[in-house]
Amino acid sequence: MKSRLRENLRAYGFLAPALLLLGVFVVYPIVGTIIISLETQSGLGLGNYLEVLSEKSPSKALVIPGNLGGPPPWGALVHNMVWILVHVPLTTFLGLMLAYMLIHVYGRSLVKSIVFLSMIIPMVVGGLIIRFIFDSQVGVIPRIFDTLGVESLARTWTAYPETSLASLILGSVWLWLGFSLTIHSAAVDSVPRSLIEAARIDGASEWQIFRRVIAPAVWPATLTVMVMTLLWDLKIFDIVYAATQGGPGGSSTVLAYVMWLYFARALDYGRAAATAVILTILTLAAASYMIRRSLRG
């Protein structure tokens, strides 16, 4: 009994520094934020949450039901969801596809390094680059559409409500593809070559090998990429701030940007904290899904 107690004490002794750091720098701020989010003029309550959820201003609304059938703005929460729906599959698939294709390419390390460069760029700089990529004066994308004669897309994408969100999402695919490629490359390299050769001998096409051999074999890596991308999409702020400031007309706002508006522009810390808590709950839900899937193996 005594030895068990001693063992426990020793374990807690080793854990203490880490727990102390977590307590001070993680738990305390979280608890503090929750308390601030509940503080209203009439005491503690859910007033800030209700106000954040029912906000109608296009730059801060989480959902704008009346606009859902037309072009943005649809509300920050919907924009985040659209971001996830487009970005997660696109980035995951392109990363896996590239990783598989690069097995056969000479000098693949160089190609991987070039793709990975986008990960090294600070996201604020990434946002500015996106702004210029989609700029009608100097950008590549509008020039391509100009050559193709598509006038509606030969203009500055970030300046129009119909295209601003799309420009950010496509830009984020470029910025995040390096991560997906790196994780998938490591996973694809670990797939035994004998498996691929056996499938080839059995007459499988390259697409069938990719779909039936490679994709299932690297599934744990794919799951990690998907969940990390999803979390990144929920927290996205920098590129929105640098490229569009959530505009025009609130057409590219996201949750984190709304939180910043409450915090830095409205100086309304209660609503900023409430938005932060909503964002944390969504992020935690995604993270717990990942952990459960990982534990299930």
Binding site: P161, Q245, P248, G249, R265, L267
Partner: peptide, 21 residues
């Protein structure tokens, strides 16, 4: 000032590309 300033800028940017709004 405040967040109205940001809204003002953003709404005018919208008007400039979509005068029908």
């Amino acid at each position: 000032g405040g967040d109205w300033q940001t809204l003002f800028w953003d709404q005018l940017k919208l008007l400039w590309v979509n005068p029908d709004s």
